[in-house]
């Protein structure tokens, strides 16, 4: 479970997140939407402390992240994160990208990690790419490898930060399909996205953010079909126009 209490984040004197309170239950799939600059990415980056809140608390399974010090690594091992720009390790092969974290953190022995990686590649339909370097892959392939890299740690929570925004349109589907499959396994997922159709279809709950605040939070169907707040309405009318 993720619990966020009175979270504020400033970059310099810019107030990016304003007094956020949020609770996400195990197995929930959250779609986080809103205009760019509304603080969505900063919010999920606070959930694994890549961004350290200026004030307030983030609890993962009742553990307060701000009190952990170096123990933060242990919590991060349970929270996968997938980035807009993939950030695969360019000097490692696809297989090494996936086995690196389990081996370095002592979670799995090398042979076990490789077995697991091959299994993941198989489900991603990328087994034939195991020995190539990331630069020879397409964007969609890179992003699926990045998801596999996170899943190799057996995370309880997965954070997705606009993972399809940098992809060519024809590659968006293959990545969303993997995420859809993941949602159906009961994974707790927080998905920052501009893919409204995906959010509507896959998310249990959709949260709309604007200007660093959570404006509205509701089931996907309710939020899209019956938005309450004027800002939500405006945003949706703009993005759903076409």
């Amino acid at each position: 479970m993720i619990r966020i209490e009175n979270l504020n984040k400033y970059f310099g004197d810019k107030h990016i997140l304003k007094d956020i309170n949020l609770e996400i239950k195990d197995g929930e799939v959250i779609g986080l939407i809103g205009p760019s600059g509304s603080g969505k990415s900063t919010l999920i980056r606070c959930m694994n402390f890549l961004e350290i809140p200026t004030s307030g608390n983030v609890y993962i399974d009742e553990k307060d992240l701000s009190t952990l010090g170096n123990e933060i690594d242990k919590v991060r091992q349970q929270i996968g994160m997938v980035f807009q720009h993939f950030h695969l390790f360019p000097h490692k092969t696809v297989l090494e990208n996936i086995t690196l974290a389990p081996v370095l953190t002592g979670k799995l022995a090398k042979t076990q990690a490789e077995e697991k990686a091959l299994e993941l590649l198989k489900t991603m339909d990328l087994l034939d790419k195991k020995d190539v370097y990331p630069n020879s892959l397409s964007g969609g392939q890179k992003q699926r490898i990045a998801i596999a890299r996170s899943l190799a740690m057996d995370p309880k929570i997965m954070l997705f930060d606009e993972v399809t925004s940098a992809l060519d349109p024809e590659m968006v589907g293959e990545v969303l399909n993997v995420m859809k499959g993941l949602a159906s396994t009961g994974m707790t997922m927080i998905v920052v996205t501009h893919e409204m159709a995906f959010a509507k279809q896959v998310a249990d709950r959709v949260i709309f953010m604007s200007d660093g605040e959570i404006v509205e939070s509701n089931t996907a169907v309710e939020l899209f079909e019956n938005p309450q707040n004027i800002r939500t309405k405006e945003f949706l009318s703009k993005v759903l126009e076409y």
Binding site: D73, Q77, H87, P90, H91, L100, A101, L104, A146, M153
Partner: peptide
């Protein structure tokens, strides 16, 4: 080296020292 390399590695729970040694320095 792109800041994203450090972030990707740390997000996997790899320590700062190991990230330096296995991810950042080789590049």
């Amino acid at each position: 080296i792109d800041k994203g390399q450090m972030e990707a590695s740390r997000s996997l729970g790899i320590s700062e020292r190991q990230t330096m040694r296995y991810i950042i320095l080789p590049q």
